[in-house]
Simulated assay, not measured.
Amino acid sequence: MWDAAWPYLAAILPTIIVAALFYFLMKSILEGDRRERLAQSQWEKEERNDTGDNS
């Protein structure tokens, strides 16, 4: 059974691994961007409150 299936697995396995790596990389980048935007928003809010500017 493995003799017949191995060529197909060997052909598709690298694609699956690269797709999984790409998924986790993009997930990490997007999560980092979300956190950065949240931190920037909080910092800007604190700066507005410190300076008394209500715009």
Rank of each mutant, 00 (worst) to 15 (best):
D3Q: 11
D3K: 04
A4V: 12
A5C: 14
A5W: 14
A5R: 06
L9T: 07
L9K: 02
L9F: 13
A10G: 07
A10P: 04
A10W: 10
A11P: 05
I12S: 13
L13P: 00
P14F: 03
P14I: 01
T15I: 14
T15F: 13
T15P: 00
I17P: 00
A19F: 02
A19K: 06
A19H: 02
A20F: 08
A20K: 01
A20V: 09
L21T: 05
L21D: 02
L21H: 04
L21W: 10
F22M: 10
Y23Q: 06
Y23I: 10
Y23K: 14
F24A: 02
F24C: 04
L25M: 13
L25R: 10
M26N: 12
M26D: 12
K27M: 06
K27W: 06
S28K: 09
S28M: 07
S28V: 04
I29V: 09
I29A: 08
L30W: 07
E31R: 03
G32M: 01
D33L: 14
D33E: 15
R34W: 08
R34F: 10
R34T: 15
R35E: 15
R35H: 13
R35K: 10
R35Q: 15
E36H: 03
R37S: 10
R37L: 14
L38M: 12
L38K: 13
L38H: 10
A39Q: 09
Q40V: 13
Q40H: 12
Q40F: 09
S41V: 10
S41C: 05
S41A: 11
Q42F: 12
Q42D: 12
E46I: 01
E47Q: 11
E47I: 03
E47L: 08
R48H: 09
R48M: 10
N49E: 07
D50L: 08
D50S: 07
D50V: 05
D50H: 07
D50G: 03
T51Y: 02
T51C: 01
T51N: 02
T51G: 00
G52M: 01
D53E: 04
D53G: 00
